[in-house]
């Protein structure tokens, strides 16, 4: 494999990692702050992508569609919170899992009914449609670079918001001792709703920027949700920094693994076997990484301080 191809794969891995971060960030915030496990977070990513598709066809402008999709994703998340999730906060985790499982089943089917079972795609917006030369013979699409940039930007904003603002301080305090924060006169319910809304919007945002790259289809959020769980376990539950680090690791390892595993197993195994073992091993890599982390650092790489 040439060096340029390796570079391309690294960039793809970074880009996948950023997508994972956007999803894992909302998931880890909601879980860290409210102790609520939301399986429907992945489906909110799917909703973001479908909204982008629908709004682009209505307005014809990608940027306007992206803005509208994010707002709608936010409203949708708040509605879900108000009507269903709010009643599950104090409940057993099993209840939370099953209720959100029901929502996944419903929304996946709804997407199929409204948009059809076939995969949809979105054109890359005009402004970011070009590609820039990395080496004389290989070019990389600007849009993918832009998604990496967007991920870094969101990570920075989240880091500042949670670590260095008054609201962020209340969120961190609310995660540790909600009763005490409420006793001091803070509306903890509203705080929780806000965190939830931000999480839903981040998932929707990830869906919007994924729409021009990946196929839009019912169930697209399910697999990425489980990978986001792996990211959270590796990074440490409730930790934004941990999610960022782990998302990049998982993104790079998964992407590079898929292109290198067959090659690597080919060094020690005959080709007929390495063609079999390589792909199987590649799809297991991130889970093996997770298992390794669990053995040596069960609390995750960068666990949140004081979070449950």
């Amino acid at each position: 494999m040439s060096l340029t191809l390796l570079l391309i794969q690294c960039l793809n891995g970074l880009q996948y990692g950023m997508m994972l971060f956007l999803i894992a960030a909302g998931l880890t915030l909601v879980f860290g702050v409210m102790g609520f496990i939301n399986l429907a977070h992945g489906v909110q990513y799917m909703v973001g992508a479908y909204l982008a598709f629908a709004f682009l066809h209505l307005t014809g402008n990608f940027w306007l569609a992206a803005l509208l999709s994010m707002l709608t994703a936010l409203v949708f998340g708040l509605l879900l919170e108000h009507f269903i999730f709010r009643h599950l906060y104090g409940r057993d985790h099993l209840d939370q899992v099953l209720a959100t499982f029901g929502i996944i089943i419903f929304l996946n089917e709804l997407a199929k009914v409204i948009f059809g079972p076939a995969t949809l795609s979105l054109p890359v917006p005009e402004l970011l449609s070009g590609s820039i030369p990395l080496t004389p013979e290989l070019r990389y699409p600007v849009y993918r670079l832009a998604t990496i940039g967007a991920g870094v930007l969101v990570a920075g904003l989240l880091y500042l918001a949670v670590g260095h603002t008054r609201v962020g301080m209340l969120i961190r305090a609310g995660a540790t001792t909600p009763q005490m924060v409420a006793a001091l006169g803070v509306n903890i319910r509203r705080l929780f709703t806000m965190v939830f809304g931000v999480g839903a919007m981040l998932a929707g945002f990830a869906g919007v920027i994924a729409a021009p790259i990946f196929a839009i289809e019912p169930g697209m959020g399910d697999n990425i949700l489980i990978v986001a769980f792996v990211v959270i376990i590796i990074g440490g539950i409730g930790s934004i920094r941990g999610a960022f680090l782990a998302a990049l690791m998982v993104g790079l390892i998964d992407t590079l693994g898929r292109s290198l595993a067959t090659l690597a197993t080919g060094l020690i195994l005959p080709p007929s076997m390495s063609d079999q073992v390589g792909p199987a091993l590649a799809s297991m890599l991130i889970y093996i990484l997770m298992a390794g982390i669990l053995v040596f650092r069960p609390q995750g790489l960068l666990p949140a301080k004081g979070a449950a």
Binding site: I37, I226, I237, Q276, S283, V295
Partner: peptide, 29 residues
């Protein structure tokens, strides 16, 4: 591995191992 943790961590880890099995089975050409 999974029982080093409990509660939601256990749930997520078993989910991940389940998914690993699924993808491994799909790659058995």
């Amino acid at each position: 591995l999974a029982l080093r943790t409990s509660g939601v961590y256990f749930l997520m880890i078993t989910l991940a191992f389940g998914q690993m099995t699924y993808f491994t089975l799909t790659s058995l050409a």
